[in-house]
């Protein structure tokens, strides 16, 4: 097995998932800062998520879903 440094690393979020975070956040009338605190991440991460420029981990996806009182499937949409 080749040394890990020479192995091809997976690209950072090559295919970004679409999501409805902004829409659901507006419905619940909560700010990005509040959602960030509920999901235990920085506000910038919420900005990246809303702009569809970051794929969250499963853990974060669940936290966001819980904060938005919704299910993961309702928030995130996977496109191949």
């Amino acid at each position: 097995m080749a040394s890990p440094i020479f192995q091809r690393q997976p690209r950072l979020a090559a295919n970004f998932m679409k999501n409805r975070i902004k829409e659901l956040r507006a419905k619940l009338n909560i700010t990005q800062e509040e959602l960030a605190n509920l999901a235990e991440v920085r506000r910038e991460t919420i900005v990246f998520l809303e702009q569809g420029k970051y794929n969250p981990s499963l853990n974060l996806a669940f936290k966001v879903a819980k904060a938005l009182k919704s299910n993961i499937e309702e928030i995130f949409e996977f496109e191949e």
Binding site: L12, A36, N37, V41, R42
Partner: peptide, 10 residues
């Protein structure tokens, strides 16, 4: 506040 999160680690 949260100083770093999973995106920072990535």
């Amino acid at each position: 506040e949260v100083t770093e999160d999973e995106r920072d680690y990535a």
